[in-house]
């Protein structure tokens, strides 16, 4: 350690790192307004191998926003967004496009 971890917003260990794996979905109760996973997907579930329907999963979108500690800087792996709104349509397969030739 001693490495500066400036990108981490919270000095506390993230809940994600310490949370334990649910082993029985039936024992979890969700707050009012939150749907439980569809029961029929997990009739024979065991060993914490659960299946989840889309509606259940989508409920996490607005809640789980924290950037994962293990996510590398995206530009280091060449994963950078293009400026889509101004992106010119190329027709006729000329293959030319804006600012994509950095080789």
């Amino acid at each position: 350690s001693g490495t500066a971890r400036a990108s981490i917003a919270s000095p506390l260990p993230s809940a994600l790192a310490t949370a334990r794996i649910i082993d029985d979905l039936g024992r979890v109760s969700y707050p009012e307004g939150i749907k439980s996973p569809k029961v029929e997907l997990n009739i024979n579930a065991k060993d914490s191998k659960f299946r989840y329907d889309r509606d259940f999963l989508l409920q996490f979108m607005k809640v789980c926003k924290e950037k994962p500690d293990m996510l590398p800087p995206l530009d280091a792996i060449g994963l950078e967004p293009v400026d889509q709104p101004n992106y010119p349509m190329t027709r006729g397969g000329s293959g030319r496009h804006r600012q994509s030739s950095n080789a």
Binding site: M61, V63, K65, K67, L71, L79
Partner: peptide, 23 residues
């Protein structure tokens, strides 16, 4: 890019990465 094994981790990734329309 990353590995994950929980619903919560998936969304943390999803909310911090480039969507296909921006690739």
């Amino acid at each position: 890019v990353i590995s994950f094994d929980s619903v919560e981790e998936f969304w943390g990734l999803y909310n911090n990465i480039v969507p296909p329309s921006q690739l």
